[in-house]
Write a protein that binds this DNA or RNA. Structure first.
Lengths: 210, 210
DNA sequence: TCAGAACGGAACGCTTCGTTCCGCTGTGGG
DNA sequence: CCCACAGCGGAACGAAGCGTTCCGTTCTGA
């Protein structure tokens, strides 16, 4: 964020600025593939030494937090983008697709519990919940009866679980999956939905170590 | 399987027979909650010492294999049960529901790669694939155009990813999820399914260490 | 020219975990 | 009525993995 210039300035400073980005990219990829990956794997993928990591972050947990918080912000941004779309159905579908493609939810799920959330993250999480709810409420008329906001979380959980040999293929298949799920959400057969719907309380348990 | 009597015979022999079952149950629960759980956690949950485990299985991998193979056999049994059902739609839906409730797929997914499959397991896996295919082909007329057998695996992947604070609640929510997915699979909107469908080759990669 | 920012990577110490081992106990066949 | 031993509990061991620190090196920008 406070990086003066993205990447193009020369010399040692430029190298350092480029490393900033490389480390974050590497961390996202590595921790997405394996949430328990060693920090050395991140350094290797970024093409830097371990000390380049520790120069920027006091410890592993801080890096994890950063990655996760960035994901949360991305989620919020996508929700805001979706709310600018006039048609509620298109808005919700597009939102789900973009969140799935950005792989934001995988981060949230896999990294939950591995670090202590900051108050700022709690605030952002609350905002994310508000935006999701608004998106959901707008689309409610086209949704199957009985579906609740927190069902969206489960849908994203399910999509995040789909894994293919390559990241590109994973994206393709997840979009296919979103299509099936969205059809399921927006089609109302006679049959009622089974079981009590999920509640927010049941979904936040991941954040507190068992 | 070759256990002479389930649990009711007295004395040391009976205790041992009861431990057999307790260890398997504990292993299923523990490895379901955390595939990388230490073997000591299994012993503790079963209420036995570590040596009681090593008396029965040469090593951790063997226990993992056993649990997973049992799950695969359960899968086959459920598929055969489903094939006895005359109505193809009911058969497929019931099959998915039962596999999800039995949590068989979670085992397969989470434990894949942690042990070397035996030839017998390979054979059973092939048989499972055949049965799934037959179940799928029978139901094809009611399925959305473009859906393929291997999409079923993805559906099960997604359901297995849903986690709730308690096992009971997890089952309930997963069934809700199956309902939504099944509706998505059996409803055919005008829109075509995106992306190339999954292939078997893409789904078996989990079994070979990366 | 040179102080020091930035870095690479070896080394350290700690934790975790699979496996082994030893000593104890209850039992069932003789 | 015994006692050999199946069955077991859990401490102990050794290996492996990982987060973090530390030291030597390089290159820059004032």
């Amino acid at each position: 964020m406070p990086t003066p210039s993205p990447s193009a300035l020369p010399g040692r400073r430029g190298q350092a600025a480029r490393n900033d980005g490389a480390i974050l990219d590497a961390a996202r990829e590595v921790f997405l593939a394996d949430p328990k990956a060693p920090i050395a794997a991140v350094a290797e993928r970024a093409g830097v030494g371990i000390s380049a990591l520790y120069r920027r972050y006091p410890g592993k947990e801080d890096l994890l937090r950063k990655i996760c918080h960035d994901g949360l912000r991305r989620y919020i941004a996508e929700a805001e983008t979706a709310l600018a779309e006039p048609d509620p159905t298109t808005a919700l579908r597009g939102f789900l697709e973009r969140v799935v493609v950005a792989d934001v939810h995988s981060l949230t799920i896999n990294l939950a519990g591995t670090f202590a959330p900051t108050p700022e993250m709690d605030a952002d999480a609350m905002r994310a919940a508000e935006l999701s709810t608004e998106l959901f409420e707008r689309a409610r008329p086209v949704l199957r009866e009985g579906i609740v906001v927190d069902d969206l979380t489960l849908v994203l959980d399910g999509c995040a679980a789909v894994r293919m040999p390559t990241p590109d293929r994973t994206r393709e298949i997840r979009l296919r999956y979103v299509e099936v799920l969205f059809t399921g959400l927006t089609t109302d057969p006679a049959r009622p939905l089974p079981g009590p719907p999920p509640e927010a309380r049941e979904l936040s348990w991941r954040w507190h170590d068992t």
